[in-house]
Design a protein around this nucleic acid. Structure first.
Lengths: 264, 264
DNA sequence: CGTAGTGTTGAATTGAATCAAGTGTCGTGG
DNA sequence: CCACGACACTTGATTCAATTCAACACTACG
């Protein structure tokens, strides 16, 4: 695996396995340590505190509950649990999935650090999905009734939360387009590019990263089978656009990946 | 066409073409007349004013702009226009669609009376889709900055708007599941049932209604071709589950339609 | 009345699913 | 530390649902 600056969002694992090179120190270490406040969290530029001033951040800080870390497979909540909170990913990653009556599951989303989970429960007061950790992860829990109350006092928090929800809506509509008209190869390329820019957002490499999810998870998310995802990975590798070794992905030719999509 | 209480959301057209029977008077007449205030609008139980008291509704009323009616094909806004307002459908119906660089369009949503359009622009400050009227329609425009300001003063308005956005998110995730795992027949059945309950919400018949959109629009929305949509309609009719005559749909066996979906 | 847009139906094609048979990887407990 | 078992992943052959291509009918509107 070498001493490269390969990206992973599970920072403790990263430190354990991969020597941190000087160039990687742009990432301030953010352990699962639950005592890190919003003020000192390295994600405060992406997460809820954005656009808040110091004293406002302290008010937000006061309502955030920093839970114990989640192990791989642990559930944040389950489908039809009573809605109580939204969650900000601090480290690691999560997947949301919907289980139909017949027991068949479909992944509806993946969540990386700085992203907000659970907004699907706001309207019906119960979660529409189950959400579980894909790896060792940590979370900030934000009780929604308190977030509402605080938004009443802090206009910029209200504005920002409207914005976060609007972003989720825009993102979901993009996926609608993707699922309704893209081929398997286009979906996969789009997925990899999407991950790439989300990793970049948290100062990890946009060209080399570890997939926290299985091929099966990706398939469920993109509306494809495991076999198809595997085949597309192999074929993109043969074309020299990516390099795949198990969960380790390297994007070798981002422009060509983009071209795959815009050929639609 | 007869004197039945067949549903259509275009009330002026309905009055023009179809004699209103006594049983249809549950629908208060809501013409495109732009002077109707939120207080007297028949949709105020579904739309933004829900959960507001009299004086609060008047405050909301003051910021709503009631535009002239839209003709079929008229655009509410176009992709990448500057985001300024969200819109509540008063009568008629709209479709949103995303145009890719290569000119291919995909329908991302249909909007019926009482539903809110334009929330995809909140985060990026520009609309991600174009939205046009499917028939003669009217709209209430709500300038977003004023909605934010008012939400700051009226906790129940803030709460309700969070709820509307959360609902949109939950709905979009359902469509994600639908597109990623349902067959053409399941998608179509689900679409018809969805329309049915949305018509019921505005006190129109849940079993007989006119489709405001073309087969092509439905196909783009469901990720199918026109031909497939047409074939599924024909086959559902042959099975006796629905009756189709041009844009006129009657759901004959709702339970069997539900069974199609839950067989997944 | 003509024409553009909308819808239907059939036949051929194809992209991805399914079925099947493997190999590779990881975590656990002996 | 190694062996075991459970998952995760890959690759090939076959099938099938939906698309594509094509021809035509209907409708609605200026």
């Amino acid at each position: 695996m070498g001493n490269s600056d390969i990206g992973t969002v599970s920072l403790d694992e990263m430190e354990a396995k991969i020597p941190v090179r000087p160039s990687a120190t742009v990432l301030k270490i953010c352990p699962h340590n639950p005592t890190v406040s919003c003020t000192s969290c390295r994600l405060n530029e992406l997460c809820l505190p954005i656009a808040l001033n110091k004293s406002e951040i302290h008010q937000l800080d006061a309502i955030v509950e920093r839970n114990r870390p989640f192990k791989k497979g642990d559930h944040l909540y389950r489908q039809s649990d009573e809605f109580k909170s939204v969650y900000a990913v601090r480290s690691g990653s999560f997947k949301s999935y919907f289980l139909s009556d017949s027991g068949q599951g479909r992944v509806t989303g993946f969540y990386l650090p700085g992203e907000i989970i659970g907004m699907d429960g706001i309207a019906s007061r119960s979660y529409a999905n189950s959400t579980s950790a894909l790896e060792h992860s940590s979370i900030c829990e934000i009780p929604f009734s308190q977030l509402e109350k605080l938004s009443q006092e802090l206009p910029s928090l209200q504005h920002h939360f409207f914005s976060i929800m609007g972003n989720e809506i825009a993102k979901d509509q993009q996926i609608h387009t993707l699922l309704s008209s893209y081929t398997a190869e286009e979906r996969t390329a789009s997925f990899l590019l999407g991950l790439s820019s989300r990793y970049a957002r948290v100062s990890l490499s946009p060209t080399r990263f570890l997939l926290p999810m299985t091929r099966g998870d990706i398939g469920e998310y993109l509306g494809l089978t495991v076999e198809t995802v595997s085949r597309i990975f192999t074929s993109l590798q043969k074309k020299g656009l990516i390099s795949v070794k198990n969960r380790e992905i390297e994007l070798l030719d981002i422009q060509s990946l983009r071209d795959i999509i815009s050929s639609t």
